[in-house]
Computed example of a mutant assay.
Amino acid sequence: MKDKINQLCDRNFGSESCRCLVMETQDGSDLCFPHLVNSSCRKPTLDWSKTVLLNIVLFCISLITVVLNMLIIIAITHFRKLHTSTNILLLSLAVSDFLVGLLLMPGEILRNTTCWFFGDFTCSLYSYLVSQIVSGSIGSIILISFDRYVAICHPLHYSTRITLARVKRSVCLCWLGAAFYSIFYMRDELIQPDRSNSCFGECTITISYITGIIDLILNFIFPVTVIVVLYMRVFVVAVSQARAMRSHVTAVTLNHSVTLTTKKSELKAARTLGVLIIVYLICFCPYYGYSLIEVNVTSTTYASFLIFLFYFNSCLNPVIYALFYPWFRKAIKLIVTLQILQPGSCEANILIIVTV
């Protein structure tokens, strides 16, 4: 048998590497499942040192994403002063970002750097969670944009239109809609978990052309259009309000100064969430932008980079909160020092910030 392999390699390739490759496959040392010689995938051939370094960096990003978003979740849920409509929407986004760091980032690292040892069903479940979490995140961003649009463009109607109960219902409907959409998006994978895998030890996602087009419209074109239109309107109104405040800053009464402070707070919140959305689009657009060229992006060589760029946004969001929201910095201090364990800490007025 060995003589036949050597003759075949010499005749067709004339290379010693061919013999090594065939012999390695024969003894199963380079297979994910050596006992499944005819149906097992080959182990990824990656440079060991580069792979270890890359995995350490990516796992650190994943850990930072989990920790920072967990701080946001604890802060908003613990302190009652933070139970506002806008913060509930931020909480929804933080939950999706937390799940990205906890589940999606490690899963993507495992899929691309080693064999998939968890079976076809787990692969399909992971693919479903990717669609669910990403869709929920997109829905949260749209709700945040609409919240700021009403707050800036229709401030007199904000308290009646954007109530806490309505926001909570909207968030629930957002995640419920994402769940049903993900069932449609991953229906083939859920019905036949191994349909996209060519061998054991592989976890790939393959979608049909029609499904890819629908996903492109619902998860990219429609959300981006809504977000851009709403924030263009917010930007125009915010600029006009800022100019009006500057021109009347020396002529306001005490009562008007309270209104002025409120407007400044709303404008600052709009700017902060504007930065949040701009960063989101920067990380979000390359993946779906490339899908305009290749619908099934996951089958391309750029898939891992584009996916991780999209996931990296979940790490950047808490950093934006820390830079622009003083209450978040104060909340972190109270959480890290375990002052939230004290009785009555949930009633603390976290919004009162002492300037340093």
Rank of each mutant, 00 (worst) to 15 (best):
R187D: 08
I282K: 03
V237F: 03
L102E: 06
L164M: 05
K263Q: 11
N12I: 01
Y302G: 10
L254C: 02
L351P: 05
T206S: 13
L218T: 07
G136H: 12
V234H: 06
V22G: 02
A270P: 02
C9V: 00
C174H: 06
V134P: 15
L309D: 14
K268T: 07
T253S: 14
S140I: 03
L129F: 11
S39F: 10
N12M: 10
T65C: 10
S39A: 14
S257D: 02
T272E: 04
A244P: 11
S49C: 04
L173P: 07
S208I: 08
G28L: 09
F222R: 09
R246F: 04
V150E: 12
H83N: 15
F180A: 07
I332F: 01
Y321K: 02
R246T: 00
I335Y: 04
Y231L: 02
Y280G: 12
D3Y: 03
C203F: 10
T355F: 02
Q342H: 01
S257C: 04
G107Y: 09
G119D: 08
R329A: 02
V52A: 14
P34W: 06
V229G: 04
Y288H: 06
I320H: 09
Y287F: 15
T25Y: 10
V236E: 14
S137Y: 06
G289S: 04
F310E: 03
I72T: 07
L99H: 08
I73K: 00
V130N: 05
T65G: 04
F284S: 00
V66L: 02
C20G: 03
V224S: 02
C346E: 08
V297E: 13
V224T: 13
S196L: 11
F13G: 03
F13S: 05
V279D: 07
C115D: 10
L273C: 06
A179P: 15
A151G: 10
I5F: 00
S17C: 04
N6T: 05
I142E: 11
K50R: 11
T84G: 02
E108M: 15
L102W: 08
F59M: 05
L21D: 11
C9F: 02
I221P: 12
I217N: 01
R169K: 08
N12S: 13
S314H: 08
Y128R: 12
V229I: 14
Y311P: 01
V319R: 07
C283H: 15
Q342I: 05
L110K: 06
L334Q: 11
L292M: 11
I73E: 00
V167I: 13
I353Q: 06
V171Y: 01
R148T: 10
Y149P: 05
S196Y: 05
G139T: 01
V356Y: 01
P44K: 04
C199R: 07
I210M: 13
M70N: 08
S247E: 10
P286Y: 11
F117V: 06
Q132T: 08
S247Q: 06
L36A: 14
F328M: 09
W48V: 10
S17F: 08
I320R: 01
S291N: 04
N349Q: 04
L143K: 07
D194N: 13
V275P: 01
I64P: 12
A242T: 06
V226A: 12
T272Q: 13
Q241C: 08
E347S: 08
G119C: 12
Y280V: 14
F328V: 05
D97E: 13
T300D: 13
F235I: 00
S170C: 14
F310N: 12
